[in-house]
Structure formats: structure tokens, C-alpha cells
Design a protein around this nucleic acid. Structure first.
Length: 234
DNA sequence: GCGACAG
DNA sequence: ATCTTGTCGC
């Protein structure tokens, strides 16, 4: 299913307003839940593709069976770019379209895996945290870059980890998902523990560095963007 | 003040 | 994120 999304009323239009929203919502993140066990229920990947030139954005949500990683349902949403890319404010750029895709699903999303960060964020409120608070769903983030955070060396084997540090605070974990391959960066969003988030990340990477959820959503939103720019409907 | 900086 | 050719390897 494909839907069209608008930018919510009151959506921030400048950086100061966006930061104020993060400060106001930050305390609503639940950090005391373990979250769903890996391999049970459903797990949903989300991603967004952009054409800033034509002010078009396409989001995708792909629901997988957590045990088999089979695709159970897919949904996309297209709309207008809601915010420029600003490090630390990625959520304001991605969330409106992502919400459109999630709302189009009829299957329970289960755990939502985001392409980016959750708690590993300057104000501890990255994309995964923000999406979790707005939807109430358990969320986690898996990023491909360490952003501004540091971490020590980690073993060469799949499953090796190193704390992602903001000063002395562990805000996430660098996790090797494939032997000898560059790690990914896992952090909690909403209603899940860091240990469990890492377990999920491993469960979702039987063959590639990046989680199956992210790979599927990435492909789908790119396809949706191509379709959207060929036949404008927004 | 300057640079670095998820996607 | 996105712009982009060829190339090495399973």
C-alpha cells in the first residue's frame, strides 16, 4: 500500500524549535523495559529516501517475521521534505514520512529498527527515541557510522562489541555483525535494553553487515521514490 | 571561533 | 542521503 503524507501541524521549522521539542519529549522515553525477545513476533524496518531537488521524500516500512525474516507486509508513504538535514536533528527530517508508512500497515510492527541512532545522541533523543515516544512502540537504532562518539577496539569475530562512549557514559555499542567487517552502531530507542537491542541486531544479520530490516526498507523506499518522481501525485 | 557531524 | 565507472571476487 502507498499513501501520501503531510507535514504535521506545528512541526518545527527551525533548529531552535526542533531542539526544544527534543528537550520536551526526552523524559518520555522508557528505558526500564527489556523489550521483546529476539526471534519472536515481528520486527519492522524503516528507511527514507530523498529528492531534495524536487522536494519529494519516500518512506518505507517492512514487517518481517522475527524468526524466519520472511517479509510479512510492506508499506510506503510519499510526501514533502519536512526539515533540512542537520546533525542531531535527523528525526525532524524523517519522522513525518515514516509515520505515514507505519500507519499504513495492518500488521503489528513489533520492534521497530531505525536507520540511525536512539540514545546515542547529543541530547539522548535520536530518531529511534523520538519515533518510539510518538508511536509507543519498542524501537532501536542501528547506524553505519559512529557519529561524534568514540569506542575502543573490538574483536574481529561477529558478535564482538565495544562501548560507544559520550565521555564516560555508554550511549550505545559498536557491534561486529560479520567477521572482520566494519561494525555497526547500536543504541536503544524506546522500551528495550541495550543488551537486547544488540541481540536483535545479531539476529537480523545472518548474511550481511546491515540488518535485514534496514536492507529491505532501504530498497523499498528507493523504489518508491523513483515511482513518485515519475508520476507526481503530491 | 573552528571543525566534526546519524541520514 | 545523493552524485557515479569500473572492478575485484564469490
Amino acid at each position: 500500500m502507498l499513501t501520501t503524507t503531510g507535514i504535521p501541524d506545528g512541526w518545527p521549522t527551525d533548529e531552535a524549535a526542533a531542539r526544544a521539542v527534543q528537550d520536551a519529549l526526552r523524559d518520555r522515553v522508557a528505558l526500564d523495559e527489556a523489550g521483546p525477545p529476539p526471534g519472536t513476533g515481528t520486527v519492522t524496518g524503516i528507511d527514507v529516501a530523498y529528492d531534495d531537488e524536487h522536494d519529494v521524500v519516500a518512506a518505507a516500512a517492512v514487517v518481517l517475521d522475527a524468526a524466519t525474516l520472511d517479509v510479512l507486509e510492506e508499506a510506503t508513504a510519499v510526501g514533502h521534505v519536512a526539515f533540512p538535514y542537520v546533525p542531531g536533528l535527523l528525526a525532524f527530517r524523517e519522522i513525518p514520512a515514516v509515520l505515514g508508512a507505519l500507519e499504513a500497515l495492518r500488521t503489528d510492527p513489533g520492534l521497530v529498527v531505525c536507520d540511525g541512532y536512539g540514545r546515542a545522541h547529543p541530547r539522548r533523543f535520536g530518531l529511534a527515541s523520538h519515533l518510539g515516544v510518538l508511536t509507543g512502540l519498542p524501537t532501536m537504532g542501528v547506524a553505519k557510522n559512529p557519529f561524534a562518539f568514540a569506542h575502543g577496539e573490538l574483536g574481529r569475530a561477529r558478535g564482538s562489541t565495544a562501548a560507544l562512549l559520550d565521555g564516560a557514559e555508554e550511549v550505545g555499542r559498536a557491534l561486529r555483525t560479520r567477521d572482520g567487517v566494519k561494525p555497526v552502531y547500536v543504541s536503544v530507542g524506546h522500551r528495550i535494553s541495550l543488551d537486547n537491542a544488540c541481540a536483535h541486531a545479531l539476529s537480523l544479520t545472518p548474511a550481511y553487515r546491515v540488518p535485514e530490516t534496514t536492507r529491505r526498507a532501504d530498497r523499498l523506499c528507493r523504489d518508491a521514490l523513483v515511482s513518485a518522481r515519475r508520476r507526481p501525485g503530491t
